[in-house]
Amino acid sequence: MIEDFLAGRLSDVEEAVRKAAAAEIMPRFRQLAEDEVIEKNGPHDLVTVADRRAEEHLTASLTALLPGSLVVGEEAVHADPSVYEAIQGDGPVWIVDPVDGTRQFVHGEPGFCTLVALARGGEILASWTYAPALDELAVAVRGGGARLNGESIRSGSPAPGAVLDIATSHPDYTSDDQKRALLGLRVPGVHTRACGSAGLEYLDVARGQLDAVVFSWEYAWDHAAGLLLVEEAGGAHLTVAGEPFRIKGGNALPFTAARDAETAARVRGLLLGA
């Protein structure tokens, strides 16, 4: 059933994502009232009425498109952590971050996106990364490549000897051990900066505008869409244990996604102090 869906209904998902953003996100962009923004776990972890309404919109539309599927959304999991357990099952699961980059959204900056991935049994099958304020939509299908606004994209490889540009986790989201690992990136030939929207950083890796990302948390809604996008564009991802990142969890952190396998291995080595 899911194979038939992937063969013929992907454009319907794109339409659902666009409609959710048009109905619930963009009318509130730069229009949020003070009481429509709430801190969840600190000043860098915000939620707005747009996040909640967009997730509700997507939950209804995506489960209607694929009967029997479940949705694991960031806001639903915040309300009921047991929702996250659906990722461990064998049925089709939509993994949704309604507004990735909420801080940017709240500040009226265009660098935010909606992330949707379809997975089954821990394998990401397809993904959608939609930045409505930038008019960019990236789609990836396992074994079918990656596209941005309908055009095929490839991550390529960094130029020999070029400085590596890497976006990393914000220090607020790193443990002491992870901070020590990130210090391994402070070497000649590497330039690091704090990441913005995770989804858009993955997109920049997939289209060769950023060499790698390094993240220290494993919530699937932040990573599922982007990891498949990077893979299908020719990139690779590794945890510090030398294994690909698993959306089911239990990963050794931090992990990296990079433009090619060689760069991923190089970044892993730096994180290990090798």
Rank of each mutant, 00 (worst) to 15 (best):
L210S: 14
A233S: 15
L46S: 00
I124L: 09
A162R: 13
L6I: 05
P132K: 00
G269T: 09
F255N: 06
V99G: 06
R266K: 14
T129C: 12
A140Q: 00
A7P: 08
V214S: 05
D51I: 08
S157Y: 08
R259N: 03
L46F: 01
F105K: 01
E14N: 01
R207K: 10
Y130E: 03
A54M: 09
K40M: 12
D176K: 08
I95V: 15
G156V: 09
V116K: 07
E55V: 03
E136A: 03
Y130P: 12
V99S: 11
R246P: 02
N41C: 06
E75R: 09
V139N: 02
A64S: 14
I2S: 00
E151L: 15
G199H: 05
A261K: 10
G121V: 01
L115D: 02
G184L: 14
V49W: 02
D35K: 09
K179E: 14
R207G: 05
T63L: 01
R154K: 12
H191R: 12
H107L: 15
W128S: 15
A265T: 06
E232R: 00
I87A: 09
V71N: 10
V71S: 12
H57L: 06
G249L: 07
G150P: 00
A126G: 07
R266P: 03
A22M: 05
V106Q: 01
G273K: 07
E151I: 11
R53T: 10
M26P: 11
Y130Q: 06
P98A: 11
V187A: 14
E56F: 07
V205G: 00
G235M: 02
D172Q: 13
R142W: 04
L32H: 09
A257Y: 07
G199S: 12
